[in-house]
Design a binder for these strands. Structure first.
Length: 896
RNA sequence: GCCCAGGUGGCGGAACGGUAGACGCGGGGGACUUAAAAUCCUCUGGGGCAACCCGUGCGGGUUCGAAUCCCGCCCUGGGCACCA
């Protein structure tokens, strides 16, 4: 660099807090509806505030969303980018219990810390719109939503077997049970019969499934929702119990084409008909089996590894297609909660029935023969199975055999014909079944929105009138779950005892609260109008802002929050108070951040459970270890979490480098949706880049010309003073880079966007070094100035602190966020020349720089003239020449 | 078992069916420095003096041309899992 100009070092320490304070003072991120501008709603999943604070893993979500929000604002959009707290529910309450402190104390403390960290990394939230789902101002309207659902018959109370977590001492929704275990604490979940509140999400199953097609979400998440909803088409038909004209039951099957192969029927152990049909000889065995099934916890019962078991009831049912009697069994592989709780068993064409039939020696009757295409597979399996007399299980398509009048049909056609037959006979009908079950919303826990219902001895269930909302959560010190199956609220007479809004007589309040997912099912609507105390949100405002344009978060909510929120939105749409059918038009899932986690071998007195790599080592334990002990450790990449002692906080990275460094690094390190392994080496590279930016901008500053636009316009138009080639090339790099940024940012390709900034910067630095030595040429300085001004603005969404600081040092007013993100000129972005690639038989043999507007003929001629090509042709004439304009020429030679 | 993503240098990753390895990390060499750090310059897929040859998990195919498209496998990550 030239002498005279002091080489200032990039020192972010004073810069970043200064700009964060100025942004705050100027209320820079405040958003107001502006009908004259297009809107853009950028939203991240609102977090539940945890005492652990944010890790660099959480930032993987917030930083890209913030970069996008800032970019859209600079593009002239009216941008809504809010943040709030999912503060009600199990996570917050369990954590408070563990810390021995009331959630009303812990939540505000954790919130303050989250907010501090978010501001520390320069996130552009409009804090005037901050919401907290545990405040009465918010949950009043969650309760209002409950009443809207109730009014429409979509909220009901029913006695049902529900998932009970013995550790959290509450019931859980199906979506909250992961592999038979509680999603929060991992304790095995038991079934328990209790009266509970449900939302009738099954009424929306079809629409929730169908409307997925319209959404710009990843195929994976959509598929997970489809699987969860689990639609299947089939036939439900009646089976008569032999010798008992008064007794019949319904079965559901998706394979009615196999009905002639039925050799037994199975009822779920809980099926109501079991008592009535069981014969006296079988009663003891049946009762014993039912007792055993009842006691099994979900995890064991659902394990596919477990051997199939069941018991004969002594009764027979009549197969309606051929009037043959088949024995009726009970078995726990048939679930009471799906379909009709009863099945026809066709061992020849269903693997579960097959296993069962083999175990209990039941007949296996083949009724589908594989068609020619599948025959070999059928034969292979047949010969490889142990007994030649036992047919294999074949579940594919084929031709119907041994099926009476239906024999000879393809099974697909047979399905249709048999469905018609059952319908014509009046003993069956086509039916659609869903795996999805109603959403269990009540929790026997303190930290949630009380369900706004009053139980009156005279009037029954009475909703709390809207005017009496909110039903306040009483402020008590004893909030721990009781374990009796009753909410802690039941122990508070002042809360429970009230008067019936209908008859005025003494009555009791419902003491269950709503699960946390109720709050998060509508918060994106509240952000549109967060402080409205007359209604949940004004129609005008939600019409302006909804739907969310970019919804950004982890994939872990694929079937919980994302399904519930879609359901509530549709209910609101049907009721006329939500203007959209779908809340989140675009969904983007960020990749996880993994960190190395140390495990040590177990000591003699310790044992490892199956699948464990070793004993987790805490940070303090790691520090006190000897080198020999350390050498024994196994390091595993795992998701960053406090419980693994592997968390890296944004605070430490900001302290050692800067917020802008952290932002750029997380954007650059990998594609947005790819999981990353956190390593600190790369962070240094980003810090180095910002240092180079700082120094170059400092060096150029004295030569910066503000009216570069005027100079460039004149130069480009007057033929006597055209820009030289390197200057034209520099301009082209500037405009092409801007073009690339405009493509990459809305497409969430932040890694290549940052790479573009770096390449552009490298070119600018090289150009500057070239022109800086010659006497200051006005044209060159104008080209440099254009690049500099555009670069600072383009850097702003990524690294806003340094961008604002440079902007000010260059003498500009205001904040970069208020400037327009530089547009590019299509003509200037086009290169004047390109490298023509010349291939022979698809292999590169030569490269030539040629003008961009070269003709196809000239390209071909140049290629054939190339000495390298001629060497490969060896005098033979080319068989064919492929010309790709702007790219390459491929000379095809025969015999090569 | 089923459904989704993915497999590219020492590493993270680039690449509308058209130059494989952009950008960065790490590493080698050099400059500056008493020295170190920082910074700057330079080289960096493998083989070969070179012309060239070989290289995107494996095996086939389509094409003038395949990391990219098609078929069949293998492996890794994530999700679901007795749903009749």
């Amino acid at each position: 660099m030239q002498g005279g100009v002091m080489q200032e070092l990039y020192d972010p320490k004073p810069i970043e807090p200064k700009w964060q304070q100025r942004w705050r003072e100027a209320k820079l991120f405040r958003t107001e509806e502006d009908p004259s501008k297009p809107k853009c709603y950028v939203l991240e999943f609102f977090p539940y505030p945890s005492g652990d604070g944010l890790s660099v893993g959480h930032c993987r979500n917030y930083i890209p969303a913030d970069t996008l929000a800032r970019y859209m604002r600079m593009r002239g959009y009216c941008v809504l980018h809010p943040m709030g707290w999912d503060a009600f529910g199990l996570p917050a309450e369990n954590e408070a219990i563990n810390k021995g402190s009331h959630p009303k104390h812990t939540v505000p403390r954790y919130v303050a810390n989250y907010k501090r960290q978010m501001n520390l990394i320069g996130l552009s939230y409009d804090w005037e719109r901050e919401i907290n789902s545990s405040t009465p101002e918010y949950y009043k309207w969650t309760q209002w939503w409950f009443l809207q659902l109730y009014k429409r018959g979509l909220a009901y109370r029913a006695n049902a077997p529900v998932n009970w977590c013995p550790r959290c001492r509450t019931v859980l929704a199906n979506e909250e049970v992961e592999g038979g275990k509680c999603w929060r604490c991992g304790a095995p979940v038991h079934k328990r019969d209790m009266p509970q509140w449900f939302f009738k999400i099954t009424a929306y199953a079809d629409r929730l499934l169908q409307d997925l097609d319209e959404l710009d979400w990843s195929e994976g998440i959509k598929q997970m929702q489809r699987n969860w909803i689990g639609r299947s088409e089939g036939v439900a038909f009646e089976m008569q119990v032999q010798g008992r004209p008064d007794l019949k039951f319904q079965v559901f099957t998706t394979r009615i084409d196999t009905v002639f192969g039925m050799t037994f029927a199975v009822l779920a152990p809980e099926h109501p008909l079991v008592d009535a049909i069981t014969t006296p000889e079988q009663r003891d065995a049946v009762n014993a089996y039912r007792e055993q099934a009842r006691r099994l916890d979900e995890t064991t019962r659902q394990s596919t590894e477990r051997e199939r078991t069941g018991v004969f009831t002594g009764a027979y049912a009549i197969n309606p297609v051929n009037d043959e009697p088949v024995p009726i069994y009970i078995a726990d592989y048939v679930l009471m909660t799906y379909g009709t709780g009863a099945i026809m068993a066709v061992p020849a064409h269903d693997e579960r029935d097959y296993d069962f039939a083999r175990k209990y020696g039941l007949p296996i009757k083949v009724v589908i023969a594989p068609s020619d295409a599948n025959e070999s597979r059928f034969n292979d399996e047949g010969s490889s199975s142990e007994g030649a007399s036992v047919p294999p299980c074949y579940t594919g398509d084929g031709v119907m055999v041994n099926s009476g009048a239906f024999s000879g049909l393809s099974n697909r056609e047979g399905m249709e014909r048999l469905a018609e037959w059952f319908e014509a006979q009046g003993i069956g009908q086509r039916q659609v079944q869903y795996r999805l079950r109603d959403w269990l919303i009540s929790r026997q826990r303190y930290w949630g929105a009380p369900i706004p219902i009053i139980h009156c001895p005279h009037c029954g269930e009475v909703p709390v009138p809207e005017a009496q909302l909110p039903v306040l959560l009483p402020d008590v010190e004893q909030y721990q779950p009781s374990g009796t199956g009753e909410s802690p609220l039941a122990a508070i007479p002042e809360f429970v005892n009230t008067t019936c809004p209908q008859c005025g007589q003494p009555a009791q309040r419902e003491t269950d609260t709503m699960g946390g997912f109720a709050c998060s099912s509508w918060y994106f609507l509240r952000f549109c109008d967060p402080h409205n105390d007359r209604e949940p949100f004004s129609q005008e405002k939600v019409r302006y802002w909804m739907p969310v344009d970019y919804y950004v978060g982890g994939a872990e909510h694929a079937v919980m929050h994302l399904l519930y929120a879609r359901f509530w939105t549709k209910v609101g749409y049907d009721a006329g108070f939500v203007p959209v059918k779908e809340p989140f038009y675009r969904l983007r899932n960020q990749g996880m951040v993994l960190a190395l986690t140390p495990y040590r071998p177990p000591r003699p007195d310790e044992t490892l459970r199956e699948g464990e790599t070793g004993i987790l080592v805490r940070r303090d334990q790691l520090e006190s270890m000897s080198d020999a002990e350390k050498a024994q450790l196994t390091w595993v990449w795992e998701k960053m979490s406090k419980s693994k002692y592997n968390v890296v906080t944004p605070d430490e990275i900001v302290e050692r480098y800067s917020a802008d460094t952290l932002r750029l690094y997380e954007l650059f390190v990998a594609p947005f949706d790819t999981a990353i392994e956190w390593k600190e080496e790369g962070v240094k590279g980003m810090y180095r880049f910002l240092g180079r930016v700082w120094r170059l901008m400092g060096a150029i500053r004295p030569c910066f010309v503000r009216d570069w636009r005027v100079i460039l316009n004149e130069s480009c138009q007057s033929p006597e003073c055209p820009l030289d080639e390197s200057a034209r090339k520099m301009r082209q790099r500037t405009h092409a880079s801007l073009k690339k940024l405009h493509q990459d940012i809305p497409d969430f390709k932040f890694n290549t966007a940052v790479a573009t900034l770096m390449e552009w910067f490298n070119d600018l630095e090289a150009y500057w070094k070239r022109v800086n030595h010659s006497p200051c040429c006005a044209d060159a300085m104008a080209v440099v100035s254009e690049a500099v001004e555009c670069f600072i603005l383009a850097l702003s969404p990524f690294a806003p602190h340094i961008a604002d600081e440079l902007w000010e040092q260059y003498g500009f007013e205001g904040f970069t966020l208020q400037q327009r993100f530089p547009d590019y000129d299509e003509a200037l972005a086009r290169a004047e020349a390109f490298e023509l690639v010349i291939q022979v038989n698809g292999k590169v043999r030569d490269k030539l720089i040629v003008p961009a507007d070269i003709s196809r003929e000239a390209m071909e001629r140049l290629a054939l003239e190339s000495p390298r090509v001629q060497a490969h042709l060896q005098g033979k004439p080319p068989r064919k020449v492929i010309v790709v304009p702007g790219k390459l020429v491929n000379v095809v030679v025969s015999g090569g």
